[in-house]
Nucleic acid binder design. Structure first.
Length: 281
DNA sequence: ACAAATACCTGTAAGC
DNA sequence: TGCTTACAGGTATTTG
């Protein structure tokens, strides 16, 4: 599912191929796709040129020529596909961006079976006319996972009794990590995901921060993870390959790559955590 | 202030 | 075979 590496792969592909394209029409058919503000607020983006593609955590930011920023979040099952003009739409296509391009025309199809994903215009007035407070709709996000420092992690973890994994997936602490990469990061750092977050020694916080950077960077290089359902696809519909490098996630019973002991699956909230009891303390 | 639980969804797989 | 149930999980919201 789309976490930081998958959204960063999307960002890079769009920035490489789509800058300078002019949005001629944005057709929104999904009833839940725009829900933070009236859908009409997006009409103003039509006619503008795509001038920048940014990312904070799992949020994709599309910057347009007249200063608007359209935010895309794929949540669980969202995909953004580059398709030729008037290409057939896959089931659950909720938005179609039609562009004028140097080559003639292209489309983006926003596909999202589970409808958790969303689009919104940064700073647009909400249903009651109110605007988001300081920092906008993204103001709650912590530092991006690729840039977070050990000092920032130390501050965020201090005094917290919650399990380490809970804080790794808390977007206010560090933005971009989800269930898959939290387990992989804990393994890389040799720390149990269920240990209290506030009791890490400075050397362990440093190891954790290094692990965050190393795992996320490696996953970006591999163009993200596609799980068994192959739900995650890039703009061309291709799967990632970092799932081949997973060492603990969804690998219960398989040998730990470092010590050979079978990987454990332990209940974690309403879900699970995967870890090696011998290598992770 | 913090922590834990729940709602939101649908496709897939497992179980009977 | 066909049905029911459990599970996958990011974020906002609610509850404790």
């Amino acid at each position: 599912l789309p976490e930081l590496p998958e959204v960063e792969t999307l960002r890079r592909d769009l920035a490489e191929r789509c800058l300078g394209w002019t949005l001629e029409r944005l057709a929104l058919s999904g009833r839940r796709t725009v829900r933070r503000h009236p859908v009409e607020a997006l009409a103003g983006v039509e006619g503008q040129e795509l001038v920048g593609v940014d990312r904070h955590g799992k949020f994709l930011l599309l910057h347009w020529g007249q200063g608007d920023t359209l935010v895309v979040h794929l949540r669980m099952s969202g995909q953004l596909l580059i398709r030729p003009p008037a290409a057939p739409q896959a089931p659950h296509t909720h938005a179609v961006f039609a562009f004028a391009t140097p080559g003639g025309g292209q489309e983006w199809h926003f596909v999202d079976p589970r409808t958790f994903g969303e689009l919104f215009l940064l700073g647009a007035p909400g249903p009651g006319g109110e605007r988001a407070a300081d920092g906008g709709e993204l103001g709650h996000l912590g530092p991006d996972g690729l840039a977070v420092t050990a000092q920032q992690m130390t501050r965020a973890l201090a005094g917290r009794r919650a399990p380490l994994k809970s804080l790794l997936v808390d977007q206010r602490v560090v933005a971009g990590i989800g269930n898959i990469y939290a387990d992989e990061i804990c393994f890389e750092a040799k720390l149990r995901p269920d240990r209290p977050a506030g009791r890490l020694r400075p050397a362990q916080v440093a190891r954790l921060t290094d692990a965050i950077h190393a795992i996320l960077r490696a996953a970006v290089l591999a163009r993200g993870s596609s799980l068994a359902d192959e739900q995650y696809r890039d703009v061309d519909g291709r799967v990632g390959r970092y799932q081949l490098a997973h060492r603990v996630y969804a690998r219960a019973g398989m040998p730990c790559p470092d010590c050979g002991r079978p990987i454990d699956r332990v209940p974690f909230g309403a879900r699970s955590a995967f870890l090696c009891r011998r290598c992770q303390r």
